[in-house]
């Protein structure tokens, strides 16, 4: 039996990107929420909740980029030049926030505020540019033959700016709910208060995107409102509403610690699937389908053998690393 390798890889890349969004989402979110407190101990605590795992979280981004290069080289070669500036800004943001994990604890008291700022701005810019990149990609990029043919500011549109802020609010909510789970006492209380406006903002943005999307691609209207597609698409908004309710309870009630975080992950999953339904079968929207952009089967097969064995192993030892650092992060346990 001949497998549909491009489809399998399309799903695997989608999984890698989703894993990245979830995992780096909450640690970028922590950076975005840095200005909500000026207490140095609380800031150290916030950072220490992710210090042992952020590096692994970011590796999913490398898998997303490297994987795209490997299995959809045509998509990689057209999307990257089209998103030149957002990608550049994302990388610069990630550099500043990444090194801040070490530098913050090495810096003198006088210099520390600069690295706190670098952590905040780096996280914010990285999140914003990822959201902008997503929006620009959904809107479509100009292609001629096998190459990008647009200018270097085509990505900047009201829609892409809006998706940028939408993702920032989403990451902020992931960060806040992660901190509710990992912290206790007054710090936890603080992030319960912070999480509420983040949740409201995110729901508002989900609403705006849902209304805006059909104007960008009229095909979506057909997709969402005709049989038999409607059977797949109607559960999405229902699930969003249900999860929003659970998140709100998780934030509000003291005996809930992990609920809000897990429900937020669920919300990300549902909206991600909704997005996937909209974009399928394109990897470069409106231009190349996953089959058109795919590398030959010999490439896909070779890497798939490794992926099938290695991705479960990666999930297992990543899970182990999280297990080792499970439970509440305590201020006495200063790693640094």
């Amino acid at each position: 039996m001949e497998l549909d390798y491009p489809l399998i890889w399309g799903l695997l890349i989608a999984f890698a990107i989703f894993a990245y969004v979830c995992l780096d989402g909450f640690d970028l979110g922590i950076g975005i929420l840095y200005p909500t407190t000026s207490d140095q101990d609380e800031r150290s605590l916030m950072m220490n909740t992710v210090a042992p795992v952020w590096d692994g979280n970011e590796t999913w981004l490398i898998l997303g980029g490297g994987g795209l290069f490997a299995v959809f080289p045509l998509a990689y070669a057209t999307i990257m030049p089209a998103l030149y500036m957002p990608i550049l800004l994302m990388l610069i943001g990630l550099i500043f926030r990444g090194v801040a994990f070490e530098y913050r604890f090495k810096a003198s008291d006088k210099r520390r505020p600069y690295w706190d700022l670098a952590f905040f701005l780096g996280s914010l810019v990285a999140a914003l540019s990822q959201g902008v990149a997503l929006g620009a990609l959904i809107q479509g990029i100009e292609i001629e033959g096998r190459s990008y043919a647009g200018g270097w500011f085509d990505w900047l549109t009201p829609f892409s700016v809006m998706t940028g802020f939408a993702l920032v609010s989403g990451y902020a909510l992931l960060g806040a709910t992660w901190l509710i789970m990992k912290l206790e006492g007054t710090a936890q209380e603080h992030f319960r208060r912070v999480a509420r406006p983040c949740a409201l903002l995110l729901l508002m943005f989900i609403g705006i995107v849902s209304i805006w999307m059909p104007f960008i691609d009229p095909g979506i209207v057909r997709l969402w409102f005709s049989m038999p597609y409607v059977l797949y698409t109607v559960p999405v908004p229902i699930a969003v509403a249900a999860l929003a309710f659970v998140i709100w309870r998780g934030i509000t009630y003291d005996h809930h610690h992990a609920t809000a975080f897990l429900a937020t992950l669920g919300l990300f999953l549902v909206t991600y699937i909704g997005l996937g339904i909209n974009l399928y079968p394109y990897v470069v929207p409106h231009n190349f389908t996953i089959w058109e952009a795919a590398a030959p089967d010999s490439s896909l097969k070779f890497l798939l053998v490794g992926a099938v064995v290695l991705i479960p192993m990666i999930l297992a030892y990543t899970g182990y690393a999280y297990w080792v650092f499970r439970g509440k992060t305590k201020s006495t346990e200063g790693y640094h």
Partner: peptide, 28 residues
């Protein structure tokens, strides 16, 4: 990237899957 992706991409993919995750996972 477009031209070499089918050959070099999977090799880099193996680097990510076998090495980067391993380093990052146990560095913490």
């Amino acid at each position: 990237s477009d031209k070499t992706g089918p050959v070099l991409g999977p090799v880099i993919g193996y680097e990510v899957l076998t090495a980067f995750f391993l380093e990052a996972g146990f560095l913490g």
